[in-house]
Simulated assay, not measured.
Amino acid sequence: MAEITETIRTEKSRTALSVQAAFLIIGLLLLLLAPFFFYPIFLMKLLCFALFACAFNLLLGYTGLLSFGHATFFGGAAYFTAHAVKEWGFSPELGIATGVAGAAILGLVMGFFAIRRQGIYFAMITLALSQMFFFFCLQSQFTHGEDGIQSVPRGRLVGLLDLNSSTNMYYFVLAVFVVGILIIWRFINSPFGMILKSIRENEQRAISLGYSVARYKLGAFVMSAALAGLAGAVKSLVFQFATLTDVAWQMSGEVILMTLLGGIGTLIGPLFGAGLVVTLENYLATSEFPVTIITGVVFMICVLIFRRGIIGEFYASRPGRKLGFFYRR
């Protein structure tokens, strides 16, 4: 009887893996074909914000830390990359590396102070430090104040691929997006990620087991900051500018909204939430009806009906459990 039960479980596991692989292949094919049917700039914006939301979810969904300052890393990396590429003549890949390194350093400094507190105090510290960085960008000479850094050249990737072509730029952004998602997936499924989940569920028990909770929180904070910086750095090349909008507190609120709509603690949820918000902003931008009101109504409906987020509720349902997509636990 035990052997039969184990065989059934093995078959279910194989079926779930097969379905997951099929969904991943279909999703990748759709992304590869998307620029032939949709505006490439819109698609690149969607991919950048989807990666940003996933980076934020790494901290909130898998560590349980709510940050109101992630715009610092997103916008800071955009400024660093734009300045390095335009003023220093860096290649695109070196410019992005500069932005990611800068975001990681900012994450290390901000995280060092923030992780000493919990709950709302943690959130308020991140917001306060983020606002300090915003006013630094407003008054600093290298950011050009309210004008921002304009006309950032895309250049050539490794000296060969011309990124001024929208098609080439899209596939480069797609490659960065896939690499970023793979890093997040590996991170949350590693022993380090398992410890982060245990900290999220019961921090005192994790401490009693001998784990240095502060170090793990700081590590998660820096990793989340670096990946958010990767999204911001690529975004600065896509739109060829970096402005104060990227570091404003509204950007932090927007990424929180994306994550909550899709589903906290799920890998695909933030992707869906980012796609929903960016699509609403894009297609309703020319309408007379305020986009923020529509986004607010959508958020209210999701909070009332989908308490775990849209994708989170699906994962918690019977079909979602059968497909083996629920990665939170």
Rank of each mutant, 00 (worst) to 15 (best):
K12L: 14
F325T: 07
R200C: 10
C54G: 07
L33H: 06
L17V: 12
V100N: 02
F133E: 09
C302E: 07
A103M: 09
I8T: 06
A22Q: 10
L94T: 05
L94S: 11
N57K: 08
L46E: 00
T7P: 03
L138V: 11
A220G: 14
S212L: 04
L260K: 03
V178P: 01
R215N: 12
T243C: 08
E281L: 08
V297F: 13
A84G: 11
L59A: 10
K322R: 13
P92M: 11
L196F: 05
P191F: 09
F113R: 03
T126V: 02
V255D: 06
E201V: 02
S130N: 10
S252Q: 09
G148C: 13
F37P: 02
Q141E: 13
T167L: 14
S212D: 15
I125K: 04
F221N: 10
F314T: 01
A214D: 12
Y171M: 03
I149G: 09
M132V: 15
K235D: 15
P290R: 03
G75D: 04
N57R: 00
G155E: 12
F272E: 09
W249P: 06
R186H: 01
K322S: 02
V152M: 08
I96H: 05
I184N: 02
L260W: 01
P92R: 02
L280K: 09
L33V: 13
G95H: 05
Q204G: 01
L257G: 04
I294M: 06
R186M: 10
A228R: 02
Q150T: 15
L46H: 00
G102Q: 10
L46Y: 04
A104D: 03
S236L: 00
G111A: 06
R116C: 02
M44V: 01
S317L: 12
A78V: 08
Q141T: 13
F314N: 05
S252R: 03
S224N: 09
